[in-house]
Computed example of a mutant assay.
Amino acid sequence: MTLRIELVVTQGTFALDGGAWDVENNVWVIGNDDEALVVDAAHDADAILEAVGDRRLTAVVCTHAHNDHINAAVEVAEKTGAPVFLHLDDRLLWSHTHPDYSPSYVCDQRRIPIAGTEVEVLHTPGHTPGAISLYLPELHTVLTGDTLFAGGPGATGRSFSDFPTIIRSVRDRLLTLPPHTAVLTGHGPSTTIADEAPHLHEWIARGH
């Protein structure tokens, strides 16, 4: 059975530091005909569960704990019995949205099995302390959450974020992946490592 990655776009609100913004989020479903793994359960649990269908949901993985990436995670988990995975360094951010639910914590280089392959956790902090990317060598794909977009690294102007840290994460953990690697992002269009790598020094200059 063919391993595939499907996209569900959901709409909602991102809230932090006293502000709120309307956003569209990319929710990724990795799997085959029998089982699936959800990355960043955002806003609309029903739409996510519809995409999963009758497959067994093995996990809900959060690339980071901003509310717009996790606000449907607990509902999806409780309706399916799947665990929620999050990096330990985002536990404080998580508690802002889900104070009464404890996820399971993952660390760098953890491998999460799905449909006969493994998703490798890459700790890529900067957008948040516990931001992770998810690498699937078999599919030549990395899911970067809000760490790397088409056009540059994610925002670092709010609480819990740091620009030099995100630059190190992008430079050392993502741009070192094979150039043909597809980059599936938390918002907006996808890109590739080859398309983004030449612009690293531009991003650094722009951030100062």
Rank of each mutant, 00 (worst) to 15 (best):
L7Q: 14
L7G: 09
L7W: 09
V8I: 13
V8D: 09
V9Q: 15
V9K: 15
V9G: 06
T10R: 06
T10Q: 06
T10I: 01
Q11N: 14
Q11L: 06
G12Y: 04
G12F: 12
G12C: 12
G12I: 05
G12H: 00
T13E: 12
T13D: 08
F14D: 04
F14N: 10
F14K: 12
A15Y: 00
A15N: 02
L16N: 06
L16R: 13
L16E: 01
D17Y: 06
G18H: 02
G18A: 06
G19M: 15
G19Q: 14
G19Y: 14
G19V: 14
G19N: 13
A20V: 10
D22I: 08
D22C: 09
V23K: 11
E24C: 07
N25M: 10
N25I: 01
N26D: 13
N26T: 10
V27I: 14
V27H: 05
V27P: 08
W28R: 11
W28Q: 03
V29I: 15
I30Y: 07
I30R: 03
I30N: 12
I30D: 03
G31K: 08
G31N: 02
G31S: 00
G31Q: 04
G31I: 09
N32C: 01
N32Y: 01
N32V: 01
D33A: 15
D33P: 11
D34L: 14
D34M: 05
D34R: 15
E35I: 10
E35W: 08
E35V: 09
A36G: 11
A36I: 11
A36Y: 05
A36P: 07
L37E: 03
L37D: 05
L37V: 11
V38M: 02
V38H: 03
V39D: 11
D40R: 08
D40I: 05
D40V: 06
D40G: 11
D40F: 00
A41V: 05
A41D: 00
A41R: 01
A41S: 09
A41G: 02
A41Y: 00
A42C: 11
H43N: 10
H43M: 03
H43G: 10
D44V: 13
D44C: 09
A45Y: 07
A45S: 15
A45P: 11
A45M: 12
D46H: 04
D46L: 11
A47V: 02
I48V: 10
I48K: 04
I48G: 05
I48C: 01
I48A: 04
L49Q: 06
E50W: 11
E50I: 12
V52F: 10
V52R: 00
V52H: 00
V52Y: 05
G53A: 08
G53N: 07
G53I: 00
G53L: 13
G53M: 05
D54L: 05
R55M: 11
R55K: 13
R55W: 12
R55Q: 06
R56P: 11
R56L: 14
L57N: 13
L57E: 12
L57I: 01
T58Q: 12
A59F: 04
V60P: 07
V60Q: 09
V60Y: 00
V61N: 10
C62H: 08
C62Q: 10
C62M: 13
C62A: 15
C62Y: 05
T63Q: 07
H64N: 13
H64T: 06
H64P: 04
H66N: 14
N67T: 07
N67Q: 12
N67F: 02
N67I: 03
